[in-house]
Design a protein around this nucleic acid. Structure first.
Lengths: 250, 250
DNA sequence: ATAATAATGTGTCGCTATGACACTAGGAAC
DNA sequence: GTTCCTAGTGTCATAGCGACACATTATTAT
């Protein structure tokens, strides 16, 4: 249970909610897109409820589109959070009721099981858009210490663990990086997700051996030092390689 | 939505159900524990609903215990199934209503999102126990072609895919095999899950290099040929090794 | 008994992937 | 130019892996 917006609760299924951990990569950092609630001043994940004719995946796409402007994103369920206490003492709901902005308080006071999704997006393509109940919507570095609504901090943690485990099975780089990128950028992404440094030369060798990158003629200019080459993913070969997983442990 | 037993629907959360794919390994085959419904003659996964004060994990333990007699099993969520059509035209419910055995049909006619769990159990320890609505509860080989309730066939398929992907991150062998087992048995388990043959000698070398097995003095007697040695898992070292995943791709 | 059969236990060889590491090249600041 | 920093490329030794051969032991057929 997360997002609060003016809505008709009869459109939505009771007891089931979704929360989306939207990952972006910028400035050599992994970031998540968070909302900041007007009344309770808490940070929340973009989330929402399930309509009667939707799958959870469709609901997640809808929710993510409202916050990012983007369609058809890479989204994956990773865990259901079902602690009976998780939606108790929901400060955001209390404040909303006091402010008179929640049309159907009894709906929000129910117990909700939430399905966690993570999304991988191209940072630069996102237009962060707050909803009615939040005063802003921003990218937040994972290093930042934040006060989060309910169990949302835990949800983010679990999303990262999942991301790390699936690093060789999911198109992490393809989805998180722009069309063209440099080898050092790709390496930084892997290092950030894994939480440790990798050897520059070994990383490059291994990556190139996967045969999933196209080396472009262009170099990235404007940097302060030697211009690195630009690469792009060969989507076909990448997808093919992922079927068996990118071999090896990083 | 799966298990139908005499119950008071007010004890349970609406719209949320669980289905458990209980894996066992016997006679060199992977098997799942299924119920066979009296009226509709369909096979179903053991499943049930969520009580108001339970987590999904607790509910899954409860459900699995009722069918196997076992406590504290290895259980993991793997996916939520949320197709709005999935619980439509539920033959089992229709037959139950006709037979007058469903106390609260309106509850069952609601839309249900189901959370898939898989369990890994020691085949020999399980006492398959049917519920009120099923005439028997049996182990069924995955090679068997069956008519299953609703989307239960798909749920089993997804469970297997998950099992395969997590083969190096989860204590598959430890949970599916008896205390003492032979190397060929362990190999067969891996081959069954992976769906392909492995080289006997390379398998043994790799397994032993993990340092997670204790070679016992005993040998398994009664077999038709040379007696194989018995092994058991060194639980401590196994758990330790799983933290980083058992390296390598099978 | 003896031989045939079949599965298990153990060892070798060559290749590849990997980790550790060093040198060269290019762009910016001075 | 010189300095500094980053990127591009190469080498070497080792561990792990796939492919493969031979000896051992238990049952079964004769």
């Amino acid at each position: 249970m997360t997002e609060i917006k003016p809505f008709n609760s009869t459109e939505y299924m009771n007891h089931i909610s979704l929360d989306c951990v939207i990952f972006g990569f910028n400035n050599n950092e992994l970031k998540v897109l968070l909302l900041h609630l007007k009344y309770s001043k808490e940070n929340t994940l973009p989330g929402g409820f399930l309509k009667y004719d939707e799958t959870l995946e469709q609901a997640a796409q809808r929710i993510v589109k409202e916050r990012t402007g983007l369609d058809n994103l890479f989204l994956k369920q990773f865990k259901v959070f079902s602690d009976p206490e998780r939606s108790r003492s929901n400060k955001a709901v209390m404040d909303g009721i006091i402010a008179g902005t929640i049309p159907d308080p009894s709906f929000f006071e129910n117990r909700f099981i939430t399905v966690g999704f993570y999304a991988l997006v191209d940072f630069l393509k996102v237009k962060p858009t707050p909803d009615f109940y939040s005063d802003h919507c921003d990218w937040v570095s994972l290093n930042t210490e934040l006060s989060m609504l309910l169990d949302h901090k835990q949800i983010i943690q679990e999303a990262i663990v999942t991301l790390r485990l699936q690093l060789n099975q999911q198109p992490i780089g393809l989805k998180l990086l722009p069309e063209k990128f440099t080898m050092p950028e790709l390496q930084k992404l892997y290092e950030t997700i894994l939480g440790r440094d990798l050897d520059r030369r070994n990383f490059q060798r291994k990556m190139l051996n996967y045969n999933i990158l196209d080396k472009l003629q262009e170099r990235k200019t404007g940097g302060a030092h030697k211009s690195p080459y630009l690469y792009s993913f060969n989507v076909e070969r990448y997808q093919e390689a992922l079927k068996d997983g990118l071999s090896g442990i990083w």
